[in-house]
């Protein structure tokens, strides 16, 4: 009977082959016990389909969206900021520091260091390359202008990303 029941369920679900379907059709028509079983399973099938779904709390959707927002807000800054921005900031600092270092070295008076013994022997005829003339006013202004533009560009990119994260 178990095998018949399994076949009947397949027949009801429509998962049996055409041959099996035709064989079960014949069985239902000819065998009273099978017919009774078929109608019993058919009634059960209809009843199972009436099962009710549970309802979550009213605030469920709100809670899910809030949880997602909180998770996004708590995302580490490293993940939130584009790597190109980080690289840009690094470049900005490297350029600025290099500029200042070169400028400072060219302005340094090494002759005044004679009284300070650092254990380093500077050749008597050593002279720092004369680059101070290269630091003309337009060049320094151009350099500062480039730094300011780069800084503003990076700041703008950061604000745009922040705004986009908020709208999401």
């Amino acid at each position: 009977m178990n095998h018949i029941e399994e076949q009947l369920w397949n027949y009801i679900d429509g998962t049996c082959t055409a041959d099996e379907q035709s064989a079960i059709n014949k069985l239902i028509a000819s065998d009273e016990a099978v017919r009774v079983k078929y109608h019993e399973l058919l009634a059960l099938n209809t009843e199972f389909a009436t099962m009710e779904l549970d309802e979550p709390s009213m605030a469920f959707t709100y809670n899910v969206i809030e949880a997602i927002r909180t998770e996004q807000a708590q995302a580490p800054l490293k993940a939130a900021i584009n790597k190109r921005i980080i690289m840009g900031i690094a470049l900005f600092f490297v350029l600025t520091l290099t500029g200042f270092l070169v400028f400072a070295f060219t302005k340094m008076d090494f002759a005044a260091m004679g009284s300070v013994n650092l254990g380093v022997k500077v050749p008597a005829n050593f002279k720092m390359p004369e680059v101070s003339t290269a630091f003309s006013k337009p060049l320094v202004e151009g350099f500062m202008f480039f730094d300011v533009v780069l800084g503003l560009f990076l700041f703008d990119a950061y604000l745009r990303r922040k705004k986009q994260a908020h709208t999401n």
């Binding site: 779904l53 549970d54 309802e55 979550p56 469920f60 959707t61 969206i65």
Partner: peptide
């Protein structure tokens, strides 16, 4: 999407 599927997922 959540509203559409929440009852079934919860069940």
């Amino acid at each position: 999407l959540v509203k559409r599927h929440q009852r079934f997922v919860f069940t």
